[in-house]
Design a protein around this nucleic acid. Structure first.
Lengths: 148, 148
DNA sequence: ATTTGACTTGGAGTCGGCTCCAAGATGTAT
DNA sequence: ATACATCTTGGAGCCGACTCCAAGTCAAAT
């Protein structure tokens, strides 16, 4: 019968996202309106837990709630390839994330240099629009490139 | 004499950070109080430009202004190793960033999978407290690990 | 002398993302 | 019956990071 239903409290505990925040996500329609019991209480299922965990995962990457929508849409939709808009949004996100990764890598190098020695600078340039190649940040200049 | 001095307007243009934002950074003391001319106008030098570019770089990684302080301190301080607090903060940041990178990598995999096929899930687990090993995300389960 | 422009200050407003609260409905335990 | 817990709703408040504005200063151009 009841295929694993959870209260909002349990859901919060399972996902590490507070009850208030879960309700907030529903309010801003990041999540679909949750199923209700006769008394109006929200009911969550496995899939909802999964979605919330996905959100929590996306949050770790630092993206905004708005930017998450395509991911959640594509996660719900089992045939994403049929939706060109979605595919475009995902491609854009992918690119943004790859860039972010390379900024972060350079930052790690910057820290390592600072920790190992006591001098030297690191910078962060516009990642070349190629792809995620192993960048040798050690060779980077203080002033990467001036913004036009 | 004047070793390359810039107005706030020029600085904003050079760094891609708005004048208001630069003043704001000074107000919250993310930046040291800028030198002033006789008329009270701010003057910026090469080093200040560099610092602002570093901030802009740090912002790309998604860290908060508060979290930037150690970086800016270590960047200004030429002998960071002598300040243990700073070193600790940097280590913590390094760890956080490495974790963020692995979350982001998994996300890229998630997108790739969604784009290539039309199904499957990706998740994002707690990165094992070892280090940045090449994680084969392809093998990840839908429900990585429940939060205690 | 006055206008124009680049700047100063302090403070108010905005937006995203929560977080907290009060009032009310329902469910179970005593 | 009454107390307590668990939920509901709507709305207010908070924090970070800006962003905008009004009033004023100063310097050069007309």
């Amino acid at each position: 019968m009841a295929e694993s239903a959870f209260t909002i409290k349990q859901t919060a505990k399972l996902t590490g996202i507070s009850e208030d925040t879960i309700r907030y996500y529903e309010k801003i329609m990041l999540l679909p309106r949750a199923e209700r019991k006769d008394n109006g209480h929200r009911v969550y299922r496995k899939d909802d837990i999964y979605t919330l965990k996905l959100i929590s995962c996306l949050k770790k990457t630092g993206i905004s709630l708005e930017a998450m929508r395509p991911f959640l849409a594509v996660s719900a939709d089992s045939h994403p390839a049929e939706n060109p808009d979605l595919v475009d949004q995902l491609r854009d996100q992918r690119e943004a994330i790859v860039n972010q990764i390379s900024s972060l890598r350079q930052l790690v190098d910057f820290i390592d240099k600072k920790l190992e020695e006591g001098r030297g600078g690191g910078g962060c340039s516009e990642p070349s629009p190629g792809d995620a190649k192993p960048i040798s940040v050690v060779e980077m200049s203080y002033f990467p490139a001036s913004a036009g």
